[in-house]
Design a binder for these strands. Structure first.
Length: 404
RNA sequence: GCUCCCUUCGUCUAUCGGUCAGGACACCAGAUUUUCAAUCUGGUAAGACGGGUUCGAUUCCCGUAGGGAGCGCCA
């Protein structure tokens, strides 16, 4: 038994920007790697060339970089097609792939028919019953098949999920998955397994929307003669109203948080602690999150994402930031006064004496933003509408600009 | 429709049959502070519902309701 370093991966598809739910998955993987001394792979799942966009790939990289989630290496599936081709050949040689000719419309009709009968809309394996004559007929008509993986006889596929515990899924409730499209493109189901094998991924940590994929993929791991990795599926987030998050992802993008002036560590702290048995609290840096990370503390129930809670966390974090952390930002705003100014304005003032001290060192009409409203108003004739209770750097810098 | 998962204070959660059901955030009150913030002290607040099993259920079982997810030639 050799000692294997854990290897995890975060595998977004570049078909959009990262949102709070995505980043939670990324963070759990990253924290797991850092906590265990393992490696973190960023894998761009861009097998769907129609939907994948270069701009999203760079956007995802930006989002991760903003949060400080550095990767040890990166691959893109579009660079690995020949690997998938090899796997397809092996599966075909093993008799686990069969050709199907249904059109999308036909499949859709089949699904609806089964649904109408109260049956689960799984594939009827019609392709398996095709005779050699049928195949040559399709070929002579110029029709190209898509290829499905034969899951096999009814049985239960089980694994010990690192978050959900023992899981078992019946093959009878699953469709034989399409692995190769009619146009020859490989599908995620196959590509992901091949990559996890060849890149020696030891732990697949992802959202619970993948649990049935896991059953299918374990069967593919086995068909390829590979030992499946450990799996862990975390619950998804729901919105403040308790409904799924998927509808309004735009406003929940990491990019929008950045634009709103939220602290990256506020976002990371929130994403890492929500839905865990640890209190939701601000952490000063990622190392502090690594130190407390534990997969077993992640709850199985969906957690509620509340933007207000994130803002409160951000305010708390902002109010605790040391001067060194904001010195360059203050300078960029043209704010003088140094540490004394910041200590006063960040909401940490203890005594008026201190206030007067910093008042003396602050230059310019910036003062009203910060302290003793009356005193400042009298001094500068300026009084921001909401000098206190600012929750984000964005709000704060706007207040500064309004006052100057 | 079928399958899987989930359900404890407003929110995130602890509890592996016997607890005054604990903590954190939020909220309320008081203290401190010549304002605010911060800090300190205290407080309000919870086992979805109905059956079982048991001397005893938040905890185990069944059902109901509610929520999440899946059932793609998307990932």
């Amino acid at each position: 038994m050799t000692d294997i370093r854990p290897a995890v991966r975060f595998a977004p598809s570049p078909t959009g920007r990262l949102h709070i739910g995505n980043i939670r998955t990324a963070l759990v993987n990253w924290l797991y790697a850092r906590r265990s001394g393992g490696t973190f792979l960023l894998r761009l799942d861009d097998t769907d060339v129609e939907r994948s966009k270069a701009e999203f790939a760079t956007g995802i990289a930006e989002d991760l970089a903003w949060l400080g989630l550095t990767h040890d290496w990166m691959v893109r599936q579009s660079d690995r097609f020949e690997r998938y081709d090899g796997a397809v050949e092996r599966l075909r040689a093993a008799g686990r792939l069969y050709a199907c000719y249904e059109t999308a419309d036909e499949l859709d009709r089949k699904r609806k028919r089964r649904l109408a009968r109260g049956l689960p809309p799984i594939y009827d394996r019609a392709g398996l019953k095709l005779t050699p004559a049928d195949h040559s007929k399709h070929a002579s008509e110029g029709r190209k098949p898509h290829w499905r993986f034969l899951l096999g006889e009814p049985r239960s596929i089980a694994w010990d999920d690192r978050i959900r515990g023992h899981q078992a899924i019946e093959i009878a409730t699953l469709s034989d998955p399409v692995l190769v499209r009619e146009d020859g493109a490989f599908l995620y189901t196959l590509a992901s397994v091949v990559d996890d094998i060849e890149l020696a991924i030891t732990h697949v940590i992802r959202g619970e929307d993948h649990v049935t994929n896991t059953a299918v993929q374990i069967a593919i791991f086995e068909a390829l003669g590979a030992q499946p990795p450990a799996f862990a599926h975390h619950s998804l987030l729901v919105g403040p109203d308790g409904a799924g998050l998927s509808k309004r992802l735009g406003s929940l993008s990491i990019a929008s948080f950045r634009e709103a002036g939220l602290e990256p560590m506020a976002v990371a702290s929130y994403a890492a602690t929500i839905g865990t048995s640890d209190p939701v609290a601000p952490f000063p840096d990622l190392a502090a999150l690594v130190a407390r990370f534990d997969l077993s503390r992640i709850a199985r129930a969906p957690a509620r994402f509340d933007p207000e809670e994130l803002e409160q966390l951000n305010a708390k974090l902002l109010h605790e930031l040391p001067f060194e952390a904001v010195a360059s930002r203050l300078a960029a705003l043209g704010v003088g006064g140094g540490a004394a100014f910041w200590l006063a304005v960040r909401g940490n003032l203890q005594r008026l004496g201190e206030a007067l001290d910093w008042w003396l060192v602050v230059e310019g009409p910036i003062a009203p933003v910060i302290e003793d409203a009356e005193l400042c108003a009298a001094a500068a004739g300026l009084l921001p509408a909401e000098p206190f209770g600012l929750q984000t750097w964005g709000q704060w810098s706007e207040a500064v600009k309004a006052a100057t």
